[in-house]
Simulated scan of single mutants.
Amino acid sequence: MSVPVVAEAVVVDIEGTVTPTSQVHVVLYDYARPRLGPWIREHGGDPVVAEAVARVKDEAGLGAQADTGEVVAVLHRWMDADRKATPLKTLQGLIWQDGYARGELTTGLFDDVVPALRSWRDAGLRLAVFSSGSVAAQIASFSHTTAGDLTPLFEAHFDTVNAGPKREADSYRRIGEALGVAAQRVAFCSDVPAELDAARAAGWRAVGVARPGEPCADADFGTHPVVASFDELEVSR
């Protein structure tokens, strides 16, 4: 049974929605984990890295003189807890960006994703991404997929820095304003019910994605319409 949605723009989550959760929690996390320390040491003079490290120390209650080993220990704990901490996402994004550029990383997508994205774009829909992963990481990821470079499909990328937390309605309002699209004309696809609740609170049309085998496959999506794949989602203007 298909789910019809009328919208002008479609904003998609990444993990569990367009890519398997294992793409992030196994492939990307395992790539970043051993590289965090070396990256901080080698790029400590980079203002972006320096600010991220300072924020880690502040959020973790470490002293300003804490060494790289202490900072990395915190980052590893945050990764184990899947904490969406902005400084962690910033550092991971830089490492992943480098990995993609080196050809050491490639993003795998669910089979139904690329055909749906291209179909929606061909129909005149505007596409964007909202993920807790940094914008830099998003662009790197979609630039190096098993289906090639998909960045031309997307008009904009949003993360917790330029939009805000994914479970707060104001974040979705900021995205809508940035896109210049009326709230009721924006559809959001995610596998996390709390994110869908926030999007709906902002006036968006929220659609749950419950993919078999994924962590949120059996989640309680409440009154949100739910699809198991994008093949079941019919978006029209």
Rank of each mutant, 00 (worst) to 15 (best):
A123P: 06
E59R: 14
H157C: 04
P225L: 05
R55G: 10
G124E: 00
A217Y: 04
V26H: 14
V226T: 06
W120Q: 01
S132C: 02
K84D: 01
Y31L: 03
A199Y: 05
S132E: 06
T86E: 12
W96D: 11
P115M: 05
A52R: 06
L105G: 03
A178D: 06
I175A: 02
L75V: 04
R126E: 05
G45S: 03
E177H: 14
V18R: 07
D111C: 02
T146S: 12
D149H: 13
D218L: 12
D159L: 12
L62R: 06
V192C: 06
L105V: 01
P4L: 06
G203L: 10
H76M: 02
Q92P: 02
L153D: 05
D13L: 03
T90K: 08
T17M: 07
A147L: 01
G180W: 01
V114C: 01
D67H: 13
V207D: 09
A178T: 11
D13H: 07
S119R: 14
G108M: 05
E168W: 04
T90F: 05
G63F: 08
A198M: 13
G45L: 00
P215H: 11
A163L: 07
G37T: 03
A156T: 11
L153F: 07
Q138W: 02
A81D: 11
V3D: 04
L117Y: 00
A64F: 10
T160W: 14
S2A: 14
D149W: 09
G63I: 09
A187F: 07
P87C: 07
A169H: 08
A199R: 06
G63N: 13
G99I: 00
L28W: 15
K166Q: 04
W120S: 00
Q97P: 00
T223F: 13
A156M: 06
G93H: 03
E8W: 02
S134N: 06
V209D: 10
Q65I: 10
L179G: 02
I14E: 08
A140P: 03
L150H: 10
Q92L: 08
R205L: 14
G222F: 03
G45T: 03
P115Q: 04
